[in-house]
Design a protein around this nucleic acid. Sequence first.
RNA 1: UCCGCGGUAGCUCAAUGGUAGAGCAUCCGGCUGUUAACCGGAGGGUUACAGGUUCGAGCCCUGUCCGCGGAGCCA
Length: 428
Amino acid sequence: MVDIMDVKDHVGQEVEIRGWLYNRRSSGKLQFLILRDGSGLIQVVLAANSVSPDDFAAGNRLTQESSVIVTGVVRADSRAPGGFELTGTSLRLVSLAGEYPITPKEHGTEFLMDNRHLWLRTPRQEAIMRIRQEVTLGLRQWLADRGFIEMPSPILTPSSCEGTSTLFETTYFERKAYLSQSGQLYAEAAAMALGKVFTLGPTFRAEKSKTRRHLIEFWMLEPEIAFCDQAENMVIQEEMISYVVQRVLANRAAELAVLERDTAPLQKVTPPFPKIMYDDAVELLKRKGHEFNWGDDFGTPHELAITEEFEKPVFVVGFPTAIKAFYMQPFPERPEIVLAADLLAPEGYGEIIGGSQRIHDLDLIEQRIKEHNLPRADYEWYIDLRKYGSVPHSGFGLGIERFVSWICKLEHLREAIPFPRLLNRIYP
RNA sequence: UCCGCGGUAGCUCAAUGGUAGAGCAUCCGGCUGUUAACCGGAGGGUUACAGGUUCGAGCCCUGUCCGCGGAGCCA
């Protein structure tokens, strides 16, 4: 048995391919079967004198997406898509497919989303999923190589992590529980145990967001590092992002080609990334004619206006304390801003990372929990981290689907995850 | 939640208020190098739903539902 992607290494040999019929063309005594097996596409030529009459007839009855096992001799042929093809020697039907909804013609997104379980079989979706795997593998590899330990955080939580976004409520036997919207607080505890850690898992936001940049359920990577300040935090981010982008360029060139992704902008993604103070970003926006006041949070048009000034991802540093989470460390000498930075991706993809140095002072964290009206009882364990050997520490959250969408230059986040949960969609 | 656009065959889309159409898919037939193959034939419709105007509504009006795009919020 040979994967289609490896067929090119078996020229002149007879190989067995197990897969599904992607498309079929026939010229009477000659059939062209395009097979897919998840690793690629290949054309199998069935001639009346190359296979038995029964196998030839079976080929004629094949419907789109029928599963088959074929054997054939590999031949280089410029007329074949991909340059290699099989001269079929046998064909065995595994299962005859019924009328397949996704035809070789174009379809609308609503229909494709209703058939997401089948849509995943198309070459474009395969390419995106392979790139997604390269991204998560690359992130894990880069972190593991630097001594980070993967520490999963719980999905069922007793209360909000940040007390801001809307949470999904569920029941935990006799009491209420919530689906996690961030693993960060748990990552902080883990960092005090193992030094350098990360959590990678699903997070849930019950916000009625309805844009191409939002998912209800999405995956987030959240590294957390003890004895790390915000400057070091940003170095980690820019080196990790650059490594993964360059790795995808090196290992997934074929998939990027399927997506017709212009790789020139990605090749420029190398450390260091430009940094702009929030203060200066406000001035930049005013200069470009935006109505924007110091203290406002960025909307989509503002992120676009900032990122179009740069070719690489750009850090916006020093946000107003009032618009950021309760746990962020104030700037030295400037309590009105925090040691936090958002990383904005180029080409209109916006925020892919939010990171900060965390408050390590016991009195200040207690004060902030009070100011934000958070239920102190739920945060006792978090406060403990400041009681027992507190150290300066930093971390960040990376949105996996936004990162993948940018690398693939997707129109919509829904294609970056196998089964997207959207505002009006929980099927399939 | 707000603003805008849309819903016709399994799919993608046509159709001056006057007989419901095409391509793809499916089925039948033809073709020994096809490239979203091609050629001939067949079947396939509660025009989202509910009302209304009209001699006559896919088309005009009202309401509802659903979807898409954008905003806000965020990764």
